[in-house]
Amino acid sequence: MKTKQNETQLFRVNSHSKRKSDLKWHIIFIVVVILMLYPIVFAVSTSFKTLQEVYSNSFGVIPQNPTTAAYAGVLAKIPFLRITFNTFFVATLVTLFKLFTGILAAYSFVFFDYKGKKVVYFILICTIFIPFTVTMIPNFITVSQIGLKDNLLGVALPQMADATGIFLLRQHMRGIPRSLVEVAELENTPHLTRLRTIVIPMVKPAIFSIGIIFFVNSWNEYVWPLLILKSEKNYTLSLALQMFVSSEGGVDVPMAMATSVLTILLPLILYIFCQKFIIETFSQSGIKG
């Protein structure tokens, strides 16, 4: 509020030159926005072009003879519904599990006091900084040994050891007013009830947006499906996409772009509808308690 007041004041003092200098910054931001959006526009537009038009008119945003042939081609070439379901299944499993362990652990770190708490939290947070290649080989061996190679569960399991949820949920739970919890403390309410009736409702928006990001991250996961899955019927979208890549080109570009569009559709729809929560939650991911 305060800054807004200051802004209007400033604006009044030097209205003309302010507007002019603002324009310069808007241009920079608009350029960045175009750089961010153009690839998406390119993918959508190319997916509706014919192969000939890709070569003759790669700049044109609106296809001259729009066709859905590429989409039909994708559906004919790969078991698309099955692959989408696989991806959905893995992403849902990973998301629910990470939220479950994350909520419980964050509750423990915020509302209990015990020896070793800080050390355990510190170690868990450190794992955020460990690149996946460091644990990749042993995890591959573990998954193979429990017989989950070429199995969607084998793709999901290694993704579950991720501390970002614990970190973010703890940040949000710390913001809950103490007084709310103290009443429960005096009444000796069981912890599970406190968690269900006080804590979870208070951090619902955070759980919601963290859940969406977990889902999208797992939806986009490439390395684990690559290492674990072998047969096409078990593929996830990332692996299906890879079938349309070759470094020399020589691949049906519209079909490659159609598959890309189908892959980013769900994440983008989720983002457009939940954008407010997501922005709010992730703005705070580095800062404050």
Partner: peptide, 17 residues
């Protein structure tokens, strides 16, 4: 809001683009 959007796009799609 717009600048954050590509964060949701898969790296495989990014690579293809």
């Amino acid at each position: 809001v717009i600048i954050f959007m590509p964060s949701l796009i898969s790296l495989v799609v990014g690579a293809m683009l």
